Computed example of a mutant assay.
Amino acid sequence: MQYQFDFSFLATTWPRFLHGAWLTIQLATIAIVLGFVLGAVCALARTNGTPAMRRLVGGYVEAIRNTPLLVQIFLVYFGLSSLGFQISAELCAALALTINIGAYSTEILRAGIESVARSQVEAGECLGLSRLQVYWHVVLLPAVERVYPALSSQFVLLMLASSVTSQISAEELTAAANLLQSETFRSFEVYIVVALVYLALSFLFRGAFWAVGRIVFVRRRRLGTSL
């Protein structure tokens, strides 16, 4: 039996793929930005906070890293609904993705922070820098620079994992594909297109992270270090 490929449906349905891809970019970008901020705060709390703060952040990290993303999305979506909050599926998806990537960012950034020698912190204090300046210039920025490749790879994985938000009717790329294949009955062709779009998005995000790294981390650019 020979299968006949037919991509003619793309002539009329490509705007739906485009809309889904755009929503995927939006969800991933929001989660990456907010998740990075959350991860930075939690990483500082886990390395320099009180014992209670360290235990609290540790519990959050372990809870997220040892449960499936889909379950976390369901907990946010159905949990908020049960509490009486009427929030769109897209907003719930962004919130769940932020919570998820925040935990992974915490551990990645914690490794970077712990790699900063105590002597560098003491040197910053001797120069008269404030506590905030020490944390920003001496601890956080060098830490982010050291773990940036791992961090950017995790962010790309988050973008790809955003496909599971289709399970709560967030109209991102995979959700659009699910609807189209049920209408066109060309499942193979639809998911080939989706795979290619995700591949393009992966290169887009990696290129964006590379450009950000070249701009932010001047020392790496001067040394020619890979980002």
Results as ranks from 00 to 15, higher is better:
L70I: 15
A93D: 03
A103T: 06
L95H: 08
R118N: 10
G84H: 12
L83A: 14
I101A: 02
R110A: 13
Q120W: 05
T98H: 08
L80P: 08
A94D: 09
P68H: 02
S82F: 11
S115K: 05
E90A: 15
L69D: 02
G79W: 13
A96Y: 08
Q120A: 07
L129V: 05
R65K: 14
V116M: 06
L109A: 10
G124H: 07
F85W: 14
G84I: 14
E125A: 14
A89Q: 08
I108F: 04
L83I: 12
I113K: 00
V71I: 15
L69W: 00
Q120E: 10
S105H: 14
I64R: 03
A93N: 04
R118L: 13
I73L: 13
A111N: 08
P68M: 03
L109Q: 10
R118H: 13
L97V: 13
L91Q: 09
C126W: 04
T106L: 02
E125T: 13
S88D: 11
G102M: 07
N66I: 03
A123F: 07
N100Q: 13
G128I: 05
Y77V: 04
V121P: 00
L91A: 13
A123V: 09
V116G: 08
N100D: 11
L127H: 02
Q120P: 02
L109N: 07
A111L: 04
T67H: 04
F78P: 03
A117C: 01
I87A: 10
V76P: 00
F74M: 10
S105N: 15
Q120M: 11
I108S: 01
L70R: 01
L70D: 02
V71L: 15
G112I: 00
L75C: 05
L70S: 00
L109Y: 11
S81I: 07
G84Q: 11
L95N: 04
I73W: 02
V116F: 04
I108N: 00
S88N: 06
L75R: 00
I73A: 01
T98Y: 06
V121I: 15
E114I: 02
L129D: 04
S105Q: 14
S105L: 03
G79I: 12
E122R: 03
S82V: 05
I99G: 10
I99K: 06
A96Q: 04
Q120T: 00
L127E: 01
A89H: 08
A123M: 06
I101F: 08
F78Q: 07
L95I: 15
F85T: 07
R118Q: 13
S115R: 01
A96E: 01
Q120I: 03
V116I: 15
S88I: 06
V121A: 13
E122A: 12
C126Y: 08
A93W: 11
I113Q: 00
C92N: 15
E122H: 06
Y104P: 06
L91W: 14
L80G: 12
R110P: 03
C126S: 15
L69R: 03
T106M: 03
C126D: 05
L97F: 13
S88Q: 07
L70V: 15
L127R: 07
A96G: 04
L97H: 12
G102K: 08
N100V: 02
E90H: 11
Q120K: 07
R65L: 01
A111W: 00
C92D: 14
F85R: 04
E122Q: 12
N100A: 08
E107Y: 12
I73C: 02
L91C: 12
